[in-house]
Simulated scan of single mutants.
Amino acid sequence: MNYRWTGPGIQFTTPDNVMRWAGTLSAGQQNASDCVVEAVNGKDEFLVWAVCGAGKTEVLFSAIEAALHAGKRICLATPRTDVVLELSPRLKKAFPAIDVMTLYAGSADRHGFSPLTVATTHQLFRFIEAFDVIIVDEVDAFPYSIDDSLHYAVHKSKKVSAATIYLTATPSKRMQRLYRSGKLKAVIIPARYHRQPIPVPGMKWSGNWKKLFLQQKIPPAINGWVSERLKQNIPFLLFFPSIQVMEQAIPLFKRLSPKLSIVHSRHPDRKEKVMALRNGMIPGLLTTTIMERGVTIDRLEVAVIGAEHEVFSESALVQIAGRVGRSFANPAGTITFFHFGKSKAMVEAVHHIQIMNKDAMKRGLLDE
């Protein structure tokens, strides 16, 4: 039996076996998947609050399959092009029997038409009441989190009766209030798919790091941390509060290893540098918050320099911590907040992760 979707002068045929994903879901994922299917069928507004590394993309597959079989048109939108480029091949692999359109600035698919679209939130300005289901991934990410026009674009692009699914590991305070007051339906996945707890950040005083960098010195605590990872051949990311401070510091770190490099939002070969780190060609990267999401590297460890800086919000610090311990083979690892004085955001980020681990244990989602 085939299912048919009809658009303006265009028809799509959806085969029975439209989804070819052969993986299995954890208990937490399966519960969330069932909830998302119900939300899509019920045309609801729904939040999936899933910790970093929970496998939230796979949670969507059954709902997308159900929507396709019901003749619905679906869009998975996200604020960042990097995430679009990471999600698109995964969806094409999971749904090989249909065309998956990929939209971002300069993409080749800009004039295509398909039942399943992956797009940046900026691309949604092009659509008017086009989608029966819209999924907004990384709903807390910049620039969507601060740009009301992008919220308007999402609203404009979906039909009045559309289901709206939000995904994030770090929902805004407003979203949390709506959930707790019962005004926004939600499901929480407090555990990663590998059933191991999220590594809890450690806080370490590093002195006046800004002054020491200006004096052409690496703070001793940070020097020791980096040297130990270099010695043990553990890949690492060092997060800095600004490009300026990072560029001041890189010559100092190159004394420890000339292979160390930097990445930031204006860096032309950011993807190549990340691939080099993943493949063991370079030992570590100095970065800004541009790398707080969408990075999965086995055995990776992370440190934040100047974690008390205002650029490191609770959300950013939770996301940064979420880069560590993401694989079955290596579910542990260290995340260190180096600081010259603890901030409220630092304390709240640690508390956030501890609460999720506690909830996961209580629900039997972690191995003893």
Score class of each variant (00 low, 15 high):
9 G>T: 08
12 F>A: 05
19 M>Y: 00
28 G>L: 10
28 G>T: 06
38 E>L: 07
45 E>K: 04
47 L>A: 12
49 W>K: 12
52 C>G: 03
55 G>H: 12
56 K>D: 02
60 L>M: 15
60 L>C: 11
60 L>E: 10
62 S>K: 09
69 H>W: 14
83 V>G: 02
93 K>C: 09
94 A>H: 04
97 A>Q: 08
106 G>K: 07
108 A>C: 07
109 D>E: 04
126 R>C: 06
135 I>N: 01
137 D>T: 03
141 A>V: 13
146 I>W: 06
150 L>M: 04
156 K>Q: 11
162 A>Q: 06
164 T>V: 10
167 L>C: 09
173 K>Q: 12
176 Q>K: 14
178 L>M: 08
194 H>V: 06
198 I>C: 14
202 G>A: 15
203 M>N: 14
204 K>F: 00
207 G>H: 03
210 K>I: 10
215 Q>G: 13
218 I>Q: 03
221 A>M: 13
222 I>W: 11
226 V>L: 11
230 L>D: 12
247 E>C: 09
263 V>I: 12
264 H>N: 04
275 M>H: 11
283 P>A: 01
286 L>M: 13
298 D>N: 13
314 E>W: 08
316 A>Q: 04
334 T>C: 11
349 A>E: 05
358 K>R: 13
365 L>V: 06
366 L>Y: 02
367 D>K: 14
